[in-house]
Computed example of a mutant assay.
Amino acid sequence: MTLTSPHLGTSSGWTDARLLYALEEAVEKEINRHLKVYKDWMPHEYVPWSDGRNFPGLFEDGEAWDRSQSKLSDVGRIALVVNLLTEDNLPSYHHEIATLFGRDGAWGTWVHRWTAEEGRHSIVMRDYLLASRAVDPDELERFRMVHMSEGFESDNRHSMLHSIAYVSFQELATRISHRNAGHHSGDPVCERMLARIALDENLHMIFYRNLLGAAFELAPDLTMQAVRDVVVGFRMPGHGMPGFERAAAQMAIGGIYNLRIHHDDVLQPVLRFLKVLDIDGLGPEGLQAQEELGLYMNGLDAEARKFDERLAARKARLEARAAG
């Protein structure tokens, strides 16, 4: 484990090792809370197995996939593939947090528990997509191989505070993406499945958000800098998958995840809950980070407003074209 982060210098007296030790009690508290409220569920119960049939290959009665077989809307299919490929990289995510947080004590307990819960998400989504014939199975597997072969490396350069800040927002972003994908999927079975996944993601967000709050109490200046860096440079973990930019654009237009959603439903709730922009008593570096964070959020809101206007204009054009 890297004991001194390139972000967390020793001038403040805090190293990653000291912070890990100091936050251990908070981690244990959050694990106990999480286990009390977590409701166990079985992925196979959410899959429409009776819709399934053989694909070509080893079975003589195999039926080739065709887009008409899918009940999903186009944007729902795109979103599910993006979300599944993101979940598929779980081995890389596990390596990241196990390296940063360790595999001993309360930290290790959480690392393994989180990994086990997240594993259910890729299992149920893939089973649903294949059983319901929602996607081309060959293309899906090729995408998985490419994406997982690239692996995943976070943008946080192995700072544990940056990692805690990142997952506080990312888990909520994933929950919102799953929830909205379900709403726009066109299939009640899919919506029910994604709603169940979203419940897990929300609990994971609460765990990390509360841990981030504990970090603010211990090291407010360093935590404020980490939050500023993460918010300003935020990218979803699936950004490296094949065709991500185009898929992200289609999901933005389709109302699954865009600038307005990112600002209003992901960044603002965490910042507001922790009162990040109202924290006082900061040193010069923490105060500067807080001011820069506030300016960035104002700028992001303005960009989201422009996006909303473009989206409304596009909708009006399409409606006029349909009426004509």
Rank of each mutant, 00 (worst) to 15 (best):
R209I: 00
H147F: 13
E309A: 13
L3M: 09
P48E: 06
W49L: 13
E292W: 10
R18P: 07
L300Y: 10
Y93K: 06
D74W: 05
R18M: 04
I279R: 13
V81N: 02
D40K: 09
A322T: 10
Q250R: 15
E285Q: 15
M42N: 14
R310G: 10
A173P: 06
H34E: 02
V230T: 11
A219Y: 13
P6H: 06
D66F: 02
L35S: 07
Q288I: 04
R126W: 02
M193Y: 01
T2Q: 14
L271E: 05
L3V: 10
A304P: 03
E292D: 12
R175F: 01
P56G: 05
W49K: 04
E60C: 01
L129N: 02
V146A: 14
P188V: 11
E292N: 07
N156T: 13
Y166H: 10
F101R: 08
Y257F: 15
R192L: 06
H178S: 02
A165L: 09
A98N: 09
A165W: 10
T109C: 10
M251C: 14
F307G: 05
L130H: 01
L58Q: 12
M224K: 08
G76H: 03
R179Q: 09
E28P: 03
E139F: 04
L282Q: 06
P91Y: 07
T109E: 15
R235G: 06
S11Y: 03
D229G: 11
L199N: 09
W114E: 03
T86H: 03
A106R: 06
G62L: 12
R120C: 12
F244L: 01
Y257Q: 07
S163L: 07
E28F: 04
R317A: 12
A215L: 04
L100H: 03
V232E: 13
R144Y: 11
L72E: 02
M193N: 00
T174C: 01
A131H: 01
R133L: 09
S149P: 04
P56H: 04
T15W: 07
I164F: 08
R33C: 02
F143Y: 14
S149V: 01
Y166E: 12
M42D: 14
L100G: 02
E217W: 03
K306E: 15
Q225W: 03
V135N: 04
D308S: 12
Q170Y: 05
I197H: 04
A320Y: 08
P137W: 00
E171S: 04
L295M: 13
A116W: 06
V276K: 11
L282P: 05
A312Q: 15
D308E: 14
G108R: 12
G294T: 06
R144W: 10
I197A: 04
E24W: 05
Y93I: 03
L293C: 01
D61A: 09
F101M: 12
F152R: 08
H7C: 06
S132V: 05
R305P: 03
F273L: 11
H262F: 13
D265G: 07
G299D: 11
N89K: 08
W14L: 02
L295K: 15
F307C: 06
R33A: 08
N202E: 04
R77I: 07
V135H: 01
L222W: 06
E60R: 13
C190R: 03
E291N: 11
G324R: 13
R272Q: 14
S154K: 05
D74L: 11
